[in-house]
Amino acid sequence: MYVDPEIIRLLAFLVGVIAFAALNAAYLVWLERKEAAHIQRRIGPKEVGPFGLFQPLVDGIKLMTKQLIVPAGVDPVLFKIAPILVMVPAIMSFVTIPFGETLVARNLDIGLLAIFAFASVNVLGLLLGAWGSRNKYAVISAARVVSQNVAYEIPMLVTVVTLVMITGTMNLHTIVLQQQGGFWHWNIFNLSASPLMPVAFLIFFVCMLAETNRAPFDMAEAESELVAGAFTEYSGMGFGVFFMGEYANIVIGASMATILFLGGWDCPLGLFPGVLWFLIKMYFLIFTVIWIRWTFPRTTFYGLLNLSWKILIPISFFNLILTSAMLKVF
């Protein structure tokens, strides 16, 4: 029986991508707990395996053996479909992320757009889950998620448009290739295109924190006021899948920052580029994301919206105009 090698390649990448997303979700929880513990002068998980390394496995088994409770009064279809809607787009985004020179499942010409398109479905999943739960905490959380995502999608997309004007392509592979040869070629230091590039990176990073609902912008699942926000009614692996989706989104956000601003798989000194460098930069950004969560307290809701509408959006538009002027003049 003849099987097309392309199909085998796609299947291999599919399995690899799902495994990568799941492994990251499991071990980022471990990293988060360890890092939080050390920041608060505790030890963190240490009983299961060396340094508590098998803790995620045990947690996963625990979540899977728990009963999936569908409370009376919820909308059963929407309630069950919501975790899937959060997880699947995240996995689809991985398809076009180039981890290395040849390590990419599908090198799309409009890969950048693909990732933002799939990322926008994430909100829909949270909204449907929250509304389907028929829970007041969940509905409040959903209202916050929407206003937060609408507010932060604008500066993020404007920053990305600025970057696309400089690179002239939406192909992620080409964007990385343009930044090869040492850290002074990276887009974050591309000062000749726009002197505000480091600021653009900062805006992108802040928006990524807000889009993935991480502290200090975790209004959507503020534990101390909304129980667990949109996930309040979920138990067992339903809850687990939401968390996997959330961590997968953090991985995607960090990968995007790495690809767009930090030169992807390029080595800072221009020697031996490879997948390793991509992973180092990505995990450093993820480490920073967790670091920020355990350092800064949660902002107020109005503080969050003010930051976006009054500071980030004007600066990103100014950067857009400045960049287009610089591109036209030089």
Partner: peptide, 19 residues
């Protein structure tokens, strides 16, 4: 663009309004 605008923006806005 269909996914980004219609699924990600229009449907979310409609759900928000309905809620």
């Amino acid at each position: 663009m269909q996914i980004l605008i219609y699924v990600g923006a229009v449907c979310v806005t409609i759900i928000f309004a309905v809620m």
